[in-house]
């Protein structure tokens, strides 16, 4: 039994977070087909229906920067999909780690700390978004949705947008003790309106001025602006920087809150 083995040791923080990703990857290798609909087919259906079907009825104009609707909507659809996917990955799966499966309790009984576990979760979400983004970009390429190589950068923009959304939602999940009814509310009254009214399908200039601030505080609007900026151009350096800073701020604030609540729940 005692196989003259190296006993356990403490690993560095990044390594610890990465080991959590490795654990998820083990799961993913068994179950990746079950994620195909949400990460593969659903965005494709949206691209076809909105970009090509609905888009055939839209005249290129000032709102679309003189471009076809397909070109206009393709980058934003990726950002919106990433935001939705990230929120999904950060609600019930995270709550389960605390409450049902309790695998978070198992992980934090090892040298891995609650903060490193959170880091691993965020890294895992980022990796999932990156993979799904690459698939989307390649499929959209076949539909002629991209004008230039900016399509490669839009994957990173979408991933960043998603991770910025994931951090505060993980904080919310860490403070959820019931069966997660609030997640349904979150999807219905935050994520869905955010997807529809953050400039994904039409410019927010169409939203009455009094309500436009709702788009401005939505991480997805900033992600959409950046995603269009890198693929279609027309985004100044300063506004671009502003969007990056906003996403970074949401991520940092959400991440710090999540870290606080992860410790509060796991180290008691």
């Amino acid at each position: 039994m005692t196989s003259a083995a190296p006993a356990g040791r403490v690993v560095g923080s990044w390594r610890a977070a990465w080991l959590r990703v490795e654990g998820h990857w083990t799961w993913y290798r068994r179950y990746w087909t079950s994620t195909l609909y949400s990460t593969g087919l659903q965005p494709l259906l949206f691209l076809v229906a909105m970009g090509i079907g609905f888009g055939s009825q839209v005249q290129p104009g000032a709102a679309t920067g003189g471009l076809s609707y397909l070109h206009y909507v393709a980058p934003a659809l990726l950002a919106a999909t990433a935001a939705q996917g990230a929120v999904g990955e950060s609600t019930f799966p995270v709550l389960s780690g605390f409450k049902w499966q309790k695998d978070y309790l198992a992980v934090t009984a090892t040298p891995v700390t609650a903060g490193q576990l959170l880091g691993g979760q965020l890294l895992w979400v980022a990796l999932r978004l990156l993979l799904a983004g690459i698939v989307y970009v390649l499929v959209a390429l076949a539909f002629g949705a991209w004008l230039n190589a900016g399509a490669a950068v839009v994957v990173l923009v979408a991933t960043a947008t998603g991770v910025a959304c994931a951090a505060p939602v993980m904080a919310l999940a860490a403070t959820t003790y019931d069966e997660g009814a609030r997640f349904i509310t979150l999807f219905r009254f935050v994520v869905m309106p955010m997807t529809l009214f953050s400039g994904t399908f039409f410019p927010i200039t169409q939203i009455p001025g009094a309500l436009r601030w709702l788009a401005w505080i939505s991480p997805l609007w900033h992600g959409n602006e950046l995603a269009r900026g890198v693929t279609l151009g027309g985004l100044g350096v300063l506004p671009a920087l502003g969007h990056v800073v906003f996403l970074l701020a949401v991520f940092t604030a959400g991440g710090l809150a999540a870290r606080h609540y992860f410790y509060r729940r796991l180290v008691v």
């Binding site: 190296p6 006993a7 356990g8 040791r9 403490v10 690993v11 390594r15 610890a16 080991l19 490795e22 654990g23 083990t26 799961w27 068994r30 179950y31 499966q101 309790k102 695998d103 309790l105 198992a106 992980v107 009984a109 090892t110 040298p111 891995v112």
Partner: peptide, 28 residues
């Protein structure tokens, strides 16, 4: 080594994977 009151295994992984994934957290 910790055996908690309630099992907190990863129920969607195999027996072998549960052991291997867990061992990795110890830097093995």
């Amino acid at each position: 080594g910790v055996v908690p009151q309630q099992d907190n295994l990863d129920s969607e992984l195999t027996v072998r994977q549960n052991l291997q994934v867990y061992g990795r957290y110890f830097g093995l």
